[in-house]
Design a protein around this nucleic acid. Structure first.
Lengths: 217, 217
DNA sequence: CCTACCGATCGGTAGG
DNA sequence: CCTACCGATCGGTAGG
């Protein structure tokens, strides 16, 4: 009935049936609501500790209803991750275009990428990327492969910047290991950053740049 | 029957009863076996995805037997984390003593701490610390507080080293944020490091030092 | 999307 | 530590 391809299918039209009123409910909005609440709960409590009933209830549905939109709990998790990667990649590309990336110095380019990454990671309502980073164990190998493609594109945008910094003597470590450790330093902030605390995302960005680079302009 | 204090109790003598033979089984070794297999399974599959039956079976016991040694699955998780922190702290203190920490230059001191941390994180059979880092959501607030004390001691050993490096201009970022990001860079290696790969823990240490410090001697 | 439900799994316990 | 078991929860589905 459902094939594996369904997992990655972008949407599914509800079969026509009279809606209760005419305001919110209906069409793809319900699916988005499930996705959004799932992301929030998965992030807060973890995938295994979140029941599909919790998600249904948060979205104002009955317990079986999430399965109308997603064929399984795991497919829902994957959809959260994929949505996270797609929008993070979109955000990154937009930021690069807005700033005229090529015209910037390597240091400014890294700053842009780091600041943008913190936004995807820690910005209000951005629960998708943390879920995708910390719940890798709960998806299948083939789902991981599908995500790896998006991640490759995301990290690919960083590669020339890191190489330019390395060539300029600003980044002294091996580029590949440096990339892994830089993402570690940034991604780990999910564990300790408190939006109500004193430090802002700009502060984190300053600290990261100062930590990684030999000199800052 | 069991009080909250039991959770942190270091051991528990089995009440005397004739042993089957005289070789392995008996006393605290069974408890250690449960702990060790729990750590391995928690690390590989996550806390929620590991059943107490899985652990019992790995340790060669019947399904209810882990509860003879630990009052609950959560108490077992906490015991894994506490054991991890205690032995990591012990290992760090030993390494500092062996090397005559005070006689070293700040850079060499950081190298020692980083190399040692990678060992606790990625060394063969060292499953306890990864579990403690990645399963924080599954313990209670009061258990987290108890662990925070040990973590404070562990990180406290790094503090003077980072401050000395900052004072010497070798570490340019704010010390507190630098510490958080450095631990992030190191701890994230649990996600990607492959012991069968090319890079050694010494390679990782070199890369980390080159990444964080403005110059290397 | 709701109603009503099933089968399986799981943490935990009494009692020896 | 083993045996035998309980109560609760959970993912998922048929049928409308």
């Amino acid at each position: 009935m459902h094939t594996a391809a369904d997992v990655a299918a972008p949407a599914k039209r509800p079969r026509g049936r009279p809606r209760k009123t005419v305001d919110e409910r209906d069409d793809g909005n319900r699916r988005r609501a499930v996705l959004r609440h799932a992301a929030r709960l998965f992030r807060r409590n973890g995938f295994d500790a979140t029941s599909t009933r919790d998600i249904a209830s948060a979205a104002g549905m009955q317990s079986g209803s999430p399965f109308y939109h997603f064929k399984s709990k795991q497919a829902l998790l994957f959809a959260v991750m994929e949505e996270g990667m797609r929008s993070a990649l979109q955000r990154q590309r937009d930021a690069m275009l807005d700033a005229g990336m090529e015209s910037l110095e390597p240091t400014a380019r890294l700053r842009l990428l780091v600041r943008n990454h913190f936004e995807s990671l820690l910005g209000a309502g951005n629960d998708y990327i943390p879920v995708m980073l910390y719940e890798q164990r709960s998806i299948t190998r083939s789902q991981r492969t599908a995500l790896a493609e998006l991640q490759g594109a995301y990290e690919g945008d960083w590669e020339p910047v890191l190489r330019a910094l390395h060539a300029a003597g600003q980044l002294r470590a091996d580029v590949k290991l440096a990339r892994l450790m830089i993402f570690g330093a940034l991604n780990w902030s999910v564990q300790w950053f408190d939006r109500r605390g004193e430090a802002t995302l700009d502060d984190l960005t300053d600290a990261a740049l100062a930590l990684f680079l030999a000199e800052t302009p």
